[in-house]
Design a binder for these strands. Structure first.
Lengths: 181, 181
DNA sequence: CCCAACGTAGACAGGTCTGTCTGGTAAAGT
DNA sequence: ACTTTACCAGACAGACCTGTCTACGTTGGG
C-alpha cells in the first residue's frame, strides 16, 4: 500500500472508462481504491480535477505509445489504425475515453473538453507527419479524413462486432490513402 | 395548452440533446414544459422510458427524412452525407443523439442501447440498398465503411469546425466509393 | 348530468452525490 | 526527539435526484 494517489488514479481510470464519469461516484472510487475520503481530497481538490488527471494521463500514454509503434510512413499508418481498432474493441472495452468523456460534458468550455481538443489536434498533426513521411501529395486534408476515420473506428468499436470494425477500418484506410488527388 | 405529452417530449428532446441525459433532471423538464409532476408520471412511467421515447422518435424521424432526400444511388449517397454533416455541425448542435446517448449508458443491455443498435442496423441496410442501386460491386462491406464514416462525421461535427468536417466527409465518401475492388 | 380522463400545484420520502470536518495512526526527515 | 507529511475511518451538511402522494380544477363524451 504505497502510493495512494496512484491507486486512486488507477481505480478512477478503470471505473470512468468502463462505466462512465457521471455514473461513478467518489464513494465508489475511494472504496475500491481502499483509500480514505480525506486522502482523496488531499490529492485531488475536486472530482472534475480527477477526471482531468485521468484524461491527461490517457493523452500522455497515447502520445508515447502510438509514435513508438514499429514501421515508417504508410506501414506505420496501417499499424496505428490496426492498434486503434484493437484497443477499442477488446472484451470489456468501451471505445475511446476522450470521445466518451466529451459526450458526457456538453459544455465546450469545460476543462475536460480542452484536453479532448488537445488530443485531437495532436492526433491530426501526428497523422499529417506520417503522411508527409510517406510522400503523400496532400497530407493536411488527408489527415483530417483520417481523424474522421479514427472517430468512426472508436465509436463503432464500442457498438459493433470487432472483426467487422477491424476489416472496415483497414479497407477504408487503404481507400483513403490510395485515392487519386 | 393542449397536449402535455407533446410538450414534455419536445422539451426533453431539446434538453437531452443539448445538455445530455444524465445532467438534465425531471424537475427541470417539467418546469420548462410547464407541466405538473403528476402529469409527467402519468404519461411516462419513469425517466428511462422518456429517454427511450426521445430516441425512438429521433429514429423514426431519420428513417423518414433520409430516404426522402432527393437523388438516386450514388447522388443520393452524397446528399445523405452532406445532410448528416450539416445536421451535426450547426450552431447549438452537438453531434448524434444516438452516439451521445450510447456514451452515457455504458450497459449494453440497457433498453437505450437496443434503440441505438436498431438505428445502426437500419442505417447500414439503407446504405447497402443505395450502394446496390448505384451498381456498386460490393455493397455489404462498403456499407460498413460508410457506417464508420457516418460515426466519424457525427463525432467530429460536434468537436471540430463545420467546414473542415463537411469537406473531409465528402472527400472521404468519394474515395471510399471510387476505391478499386 | 356525471364521471372519467387529463390537468395543476406542491409536499414528501428515500436515496445519492460532492465536499468538509474531526480524530487518530504511522513513518520519515532533520 | 520533534515535526511534518501522508494516511485511515467515518460522521456530517447541503444539495439534488427520482418517484409517490394528496388535494383540487377543468372538460368532454356517453
Amino acid at each position: 500500500m504505497k502510493d495512494a494517489r496512484r491507486r486512486i488514479l488507477d481505480t478512477a481510470t478503470r471505473l470512468f472508462y468502463t462505466e462512465g464519469v457521471h455514473t461513478v461516484g467518489i464513494d465508489r472510487i475511494i472504496a475500491e481504491a481502499g483509500v480514505a475520503k480525506a486522502t482523496f481530497y488531499h490529492h485531488f481538490k475536486a472530482k472534475d480535477l480527477l477526471v482531468c488527471a485521468y484524461l491527461t494521463e490517457q493523452y500522455d500514454l497515447q502520445r508515447i505509445a502510438l509514435p513508438a509503434l514499429p514501421g515508417e510512413g504508410r506501414a506505420k499508418l496501417e499499424t496505428v489504425f490496426a492498434r486503434l481498432a484493437e484497443l477499442g474493441t477488446g472484451p470489456g472495452f468501451r471505445g475511446c475515453p476522450f470521445l466518451n468523456a466529451a459526450a458526457e460534458f456538453a459544455d465546450p468550455a469545460h476543462p475536460v473538453r480542452a484536453i479532448v481538443d488537445d488530443y485531437r489536434v495532436w492526433f491530426t498533426g501526428f497523422m499529417s507527419g506520417l503522411l508527409t513521411e510517406a510522400g503523400h501529395p496532400s497530407p493536411e486534408p488527408t489527415a483530417h479524413q483520417l481523424l474522421l476515420l479514427r472517430d468512426g473506428v472508436a465509436v463503432s468499436g464500442a457498438l459493433d462486432t470487432p472483426e467487422q470494425v477491424r476489416a472496415s477500418a483497414l479497407a477504408s484506410l487503404r481507400s483513403l490513402l490510395d485515392a487519386p488527388a
